[in-house]
Amino acid sequence: MNLHWLQHVPFEGLGTIEQWAADNGAEITCTRLYAGDALPDLNSFDRLVVMGGPMGIHDHGEHPWLVEEKRFIKQAIDANKTVVGICLGAQLMADALGAEVYPGPHKEIGWFPIQRSNGAPSLIPEALTVFHWHGDTFEIPEGAVRLAGSEPGINQGFVYGDRAVGLQFHMETTPNTMEALIQNCGHELTDAPYIQSATQMRAGIEHIGTVNAAMNNLLDALP
Results as ranks from 00 to 15, higher is better:
P121V: 06
H187V: 10
I140E: 09
F138C: 13
P175G: 07
I182G: 00
T174E: 03
H207A: 14
G161C: 14
L147K: 11
W133G: 15
P113E: 02
T173R: 05
M201G: 10
A192M: 08
G149S: 12
Q196I: 01
T177C: 03
T129V: 13
A127R: 13
T174L: 00
F169A: 03
I124V: 10
Q183V: 14
G110P: 03
S117V: 13
M215K: 11
P193W: 02
D162I: 12
E206N: 15
G135I: 09
L181M: 07
G110W: 00
P141T: 07
I140H: 06
Q200M: 07
I114K: 04
F131E: 06
W111H: 02
P113M: 06
V211N: 05
A214P: 00
G204I: 04
T190W: 10
P121E: 13
T199K: 12
T137W: 07
P125F: 07
A221C: 08
A213D: 12
T174H: 01
F169C: 06
Q115W: 11
H132L: 13
L189T: 00
L147M: 15
N212P: 14
A148T: 03
F158C: 00
I140N: 08
P121T: 11
A144H: 02
L219A: 01
D162H: 01
G186E: 09
I195Y: 10
H134S: 08
W111S: 03
L218Y: 05
R163G: 07
G166A: 00
A203I: 07
G119Q: 08
M178H: 03
A127I: 09
D136M: 07
F158Y: 02
N176F: 05
A203E: 15
N176P: 06
A144K: 03
G110E: 01
H134P: 08
S122M: 08
M215W: 05
R163C: 10
A148S: 07
A221G: 10
V159C: 03
I140W: 06
G157A: 01
V159Y: 11
I140Q: 05
A148G: 07
Q183E: 13
P113S: 09
G204L: 08
I124G: 11
L181D: 01
H134I: 15
G186A: 04
E172Q: 04
G110D: 02
A127F: 09
G186H: 04
I140P: 05
P152R: 13
G153M: 06
G166D: 04
Q183T: 14
F131Q: 07
N217G: 15
